[in-house]
């Protein structure tokens, strides 16, 4: 029972970290309509920045700064956000597809750097001994996982509240206006490209935070963690939960991660070792098909976007603008 509770906490920490990634993608795609296929790349930036800054000295790579974990997280957000801003500067004024190709490219490039810049990233072997929060509790896994769950939950809750406030703010409304009709937003005097850049950088910073949180929870990172499958998982989570809705982003993360973990468990338990690689491939086929099916059948996802209007309008209109009324999409 205790084991199960411990595993539950461990599972939830992982799922919530994915939830943070989804919240970042939701700022970019859900709110602003910016397509990002490089989620794994921004998570990798966050993970490596924080890992390099917080790990003790290692003989074969640059490091030994020994920063506190929190400082590492902040730096991860800053660097990942700056990287997103750079990508945005180059491509946001162009067609949406160019952003897709560029973010895809940056994820590939960051993976290549992680793999080859051995002096910085440890190369294919990655970085170990990343300080874990509450590592003093590591002897009792349940206490360790519970404490980390509390910390992760706290971060997620804070982030969720901030993003909800931003969504309802005039700034959030401009983002959705740009998403729905760029020309109309521009004609109202909104600086379309600058708002897009802000949203893209904010989303990138949140993904960087998630990457750092994951690195510190697991304590070890390697380039293979940041392949396109990660990007794909995050997209599946956001689409399943309901793009445009922060609550949907978190729900989707927990559900998809639960399905993923369960099916991995089933593959590990019931499939003969010789066929496990094949079964794992089939698992990916299944989730790919599922994503496509949801896009076809229920593009709003489980929760879907709510009509978010200013508090003042809500107060005025009373029941007539039910918050559960779906908007177009």
């Amino acid at each position: 029972m205790i084991d199960l509770l411990g595993y539950g906490a461990f599972f939830l920490v992982n799922a919530l970290i994915f939830g943070v990634l989804c919240l970042g993608l939701n700022v970019q795609w859900g709110q602003t309509g910016l397509f990002n296929v490089g989620v794994a790349g921004f998570a990798a930036i966050g993970a490596y920045v924080s890992a390099i800054l917080t790990t003790p000295d290692a003989a074969d790579r640059i490091g030994g700064f020994g920063w506190p974990i929190l400082a590492g997280w902040l730096a991860a957000m800053l660097v990942a956000g700056a990287a997103a801003a750079l990508v945005g500067l180059a491509t946001l004024r162009l067609r949406a597809d160019y952003l897709a190709m560029t973010t895809f490219g940056i994820a590939v490039t960051i993976q290549v750097i992680a793999l080859n810049a051995t002096a910085l990233t440890g190369g294919p072997f990655g970085i170990a001994f990343i300080p874990r929060p509450f590592s003093s509790l590591a002897e009792t896994p349940i206490a360790f996982n519970a404490a980390n769950l509390a910390l992760t939950g706290f971060v997620v809750l804070g982030l969720f509240l901030i993003l909800e406030t931003l969504t309802r703010s005039p700034w959030g409304r401009v983002l959705r206006a740009i998403r729905e009709d760029e020309a109309a937003a521009a004609s109202l005097g909104k600086n379309v490209n600058f708002h897009r850049l802000q949203a893209f950088a904010l989303g990138g910073a949140i993904m960087g935070l998630a990457g750092a949180m994951q690195a510190h929870f697991i304590g070890f990172i390697a380039p293979d963690n940041y392949l396109s499958i990660l990007t794909f998982q995050v997209w599946a989570m956001l689409i399943v939960g309901g793009s445009g809705n922060n609550r949907g982003a978190l729900i989707g993360a927990v559900i998809v991660w639960a399905l993923w973990s369960l099916s991995s468990l089933a593959v590990g338990t019931f499939v003969a070792p010789a066929f496990q690689a094949r079964a794992a491939a089939l698992q990916i086929v299944a989730i790919g098909v599922a994503l496509a099916a949801i896009l076809l059948v229920r593009p709003r996802g489980l929760v879907g976007e709510r009509a978010t209007v200013s508090r003042d309008v809500e107060a005025l209109a009373g029941e007539s603008t039910s918050p559960h009324e779906p908007v177009r999409d």
Partner: peptide, 24 residues
């Protein structure tokens, strides 16, 4: 149009994993 890009991203992964399933 951009939803089609997401769909193609998902289909791409499924097609590739299918080859890994069939041929390792």
């Amino acid at each position: 149009g951009i939803v089609m890009v997401i769909a193609s991203f998902g289909a791409s992964l499924a097609l590739r994993a299918m080859l890994e399933f069939l041929f390792t």
